[in-house]
């Protein structure tokens, strides 16, 4: 199916050159698939098609930049819009394989939450790395703060953490008392890194599973393998809402991150792509996505449009952002490899 969509997309674009009229009729949007893309389909693709008569063709990618870069370098750009991560947006902008975003058409940068308006990509959703616990394992009240995740005396039981330094080191520092605002300042120093690893040392023996796939944490909680686990908030929300699990999210110290729309440099339908992005940035359109998946809007005016009962489960809810940080794409672009090496070495010890 995926290759069929790709072929359709390719065919649509191949036709563009010779028949500009037809070009108006299709747009290729590439995303990650699964329930996330499903929510995009319901909130954006279908209404957009209905309103403008432009068919949205879908393709999938796994976030590895090689394909996207290759497309731009060879001039065979078959995607019009790509759903990217902040790291991609940063790299793509610097290395020139993403178009710049014209914020004048979508209400200016100041209309977005911190970090959402990047030079070459504009965020559509905020998701969050949090930790969650199985409420049935803590009948006398569960953990409340990030420090509780590391407190195995007060809250005993096996844990699962992500097998990557990103967010894991930040959590360790927050639990160790670093204010969320200073996390990256501290982590940017060798002493800060040592401090984060020293904090991780204290619960290493209690981490039963280091997870690598987003589907693992809710499964591990459900199977009773662990009592608490770091996770992406959407996955936990899904397990609670659709599988009736008694999991609770601890929002304290959450690390917010974004998914963003970007246009590959040299795309064939620039005008149409701009129109699509503008459409999805309308507050009443953007606020629709939260109905289908528990990720929050990035535009302040859109957040206001989300009904209160849905808002409570979103990373951007005021109640949930009292002590939070935004994952610093710039920091991780600089330090991912260095810290991953150190992290893996530490894991193997």
């Amino acid at each position: 199916m995926r290759s069929l969509k790709l072929m359709l997309g390719g065919a649509a674009i191949a036709v563009v050159a010779s028949a500009p009229v037809l070009a108006q009729d299709a747009l290729t949007v590439t995303s990650y698939g699964g329930s996330y893309t499903k929510s995009q389909e319901q909130a954006f693709y279908e209404p957009f098609a209905k309103e403008t008569g432009v068919k949205v063709l879908q393709d999938e990618w796994d976030g590895s930049t090689a394909k996207l870069k290759g497309m731009v370098e060879t001039g065979q750009v078959t995607w019009d819009i790509v759903d990217v991560e902040p790291g991609h947006a940063l790299q793509g902008c610097e290395e020139g394989w993403l178009e710049e975003i014209d914020y004048s058409k979508i209400g200016g940068r100041e209309g977005f939450v911190d970090g959402a308006a990047m030079d070459c990509a504009v965020a559509t959703i905020v998701f969050s790395t949090i930790y969650a616990y199985d409420a049935s394992k803590f009948p006398n009240g569960g953990p409340q703060t990030m420090a509780d995740l590391f407190d195995t005396e007060k809250f005993p039981g096996p844990r699962s953490l992500r097998k990557a330094p990103k967010t894991t080191l930040e959590f360790a520092l927050i639990a160790d008392g670093v204010p969320t605002a200073d996390v990256y300042k501290v982590l940017g120093t060798p002493e800060g890194v040592d401090r984060a690893f020293a904090k991780l040392d204290t619960i290493k023996k209690d981490v039963k599973v280091w997870w690598s796939a987003g589907a693992q944490p809710p499964q591990l909680l459900a199977d009773g393998e662990v009592v608490m686990a770091t996770a992406w908030n959407g996955r936990i929300f899904d397990a609670v809402k659709n599988d009736g699990k008694n999991f609770k999210i601890v929002w304290d110290g959450q690390g917010q991150d974004f998914n963003l729309w970007a246009e590959p440099k040299g795309l064939k339908n620039k005008e149409l792509a701009d129109r699509f992005i503008e459409y999805t940035m309308r507050p009443d359109v953007m606020s629709q996505q939260s109905k289908y998946i528990s990720y929050g809007p990035t535009k302040k005016t859109a957040i206001e449009k989300v009904p209160a009962d849905i808002l409570a489960d979103l990373p951007t809810a005021p109640e949930n952002t009292k002590n939070s940080f935004v994952v610093d794409a710039e920091f991780w672009a600089d330090h991912d490899e260095e810290l991953t090496e150190r992290f893996n070495k530490w894991l193997a010890q």
Binding site: Q91, G96, G188, E330, A333, H335
Partner: peptide, 16 residues
């Protein structure tokens, strides 16, 4: 940008 990324391998943080 490409060079900055490469320099970062030799000295983490040098990219930015």
């Amino acid at each position: 940008a490409v060079l900055a990324k490469q320099l970062n391998y030799h000295d983490a943080g040098m990219r930015s």
